[in-house]
Computed example of a mutant assay.
Amino acid sequence: MKGPTRGYWCKCWTENVTGTGGPARLASFDAYSASQADRWVAIALRTISPALDSDASDEAWAWLHEERAQTRRALLRSEPCTVTITHADVRITWTIRPVLFLALAHRQTTELPACAHRFKSCITE
């Protein structure tokens, strides 16, 4: 089996800034490089920017043109990063944090570990 792989866990969620309703996760993404992680946020911001109010659009473009390089440098230092845009009464937050992805056993080409044979299915046929 292959060992752990360094990467980044990326999440995006929204929350109402007026306090009504809890956060709702919109998406998550596993990235294997800092550039892939910050590109995920950049693509999302470019996609939604035409629909944002002018202040939120300015925040989005400021990150894209001025702060994205800082985010990439922080990720390369294994520091977690957050990008937040507020549109009307909705806050949209992207988080990127360094993680280790564990390899999974492939059932057809690898012998499963002994503990796998002790698993009892709760599904009856």
Rank of each mutant, 00 (worst) to 15 (best):
T84A: 04
D58T: 15
H65F: 12
R77D: 13
Q70F: 00
E67I: 06
H65S: 13
V83W: 08
S54F: 11
A60C: 12
D58P: 07
A51G: 05
D55I: 11
S57F: 01
Q70C: 00
C81A: 10
D55C: 09
R73H: 11
A62M: 08
E66F: 06
A62I: 08
S54T: 13
A69G: 02
S54D: 15
W63Q: 04
W63C: 04
S54A: 15
R72P: 06
E79V: 03
T82V: 10
D53F: 15
D55P: 08
W61C: 04
A56P: 12
E67A: 07
L52I: 08
A56L: 11
A51Y: 05
T84N: 00
S54L: 14
R72A: 06
R77Y: 07
A74Q: 13
A60V: 09
T71Y: 01
S78A: 06
L75E: 02
C81K: 08
W61P: 02
L52F: 07
T82L: 08
W63P: 07
C81V: 04
L64W: 00
L64A: 02
R77W: 06
L64N: 01
L52K: 04
R77Q: 11
R68N: 12
L76Q: 02
S54P: 10
D53E: 15
R72M: 06
A56W: 10
P80Q: 00
D53A: 14
C81T: 02
T82Q: 09
A56Q: 10
D58E: 15
T84L: 02
C81R: 10
L75A: 03
